[in-house]
């Protein structure tokens, strides 16, 4: 199954959607759907992204996303539940 759903908490600041969508575009990752909404913390927004991997690894997509300073944390959603991201190195939930 090459479609995965990830939940990404980001700083609620101008341009953050461009940072995330731009990363997907320039690394040729494919977004199937993307939803952005508020969280209980006004400084933090939540993005739910369905990514169609098409040959890329989920680990690499997450690692590249995590390099964005505005990205706070990333989790994969599996059957509606949050699943800890399997990773080479645990920096994602910092």
């Amino acid at each position: 199954m090459s479609i995965h759903t990830i939940e990404v908490l980001v700083e609620n600041e101008p341009g953050v959607l461009a940072r995330v969508s731009g990363l997907f575009a320039r690394r040729a990752y494919n977004i199937d759907t993307l939803v952005v909404g508020p969280t209980s913390n006004p400084e933090v927004s939540k993005m739910v992204i369905q990514v169609n991997l098409e040959g890329h690894s989920l680990e690499q997509v997450i690692a590249q996303l995590d390099k964005l300073i505005s990205v706070i944390s990333i989790e994969e959603l599996v059957d509606g539940a949050k699943k800890p991201v399997k990773d080479t190195q645990p920096d994602y939930q910092n």
Binding site: S57, E59, Q60, A63, Q64, D66, K67, D87, T88, Q89, D91
Partner: peptide, 17 residues
């Protein structure tokens, strides 16, 4: 030092970040 370099182009049997 960059976790995103691990497994980007070549699989790492032992990654050390």
């Amino acid at each position: 030092i960059d976790p995103a370099e691990i497994n980007k182009n070549k699989f790492a049997d032992v990654p050390v970040v």
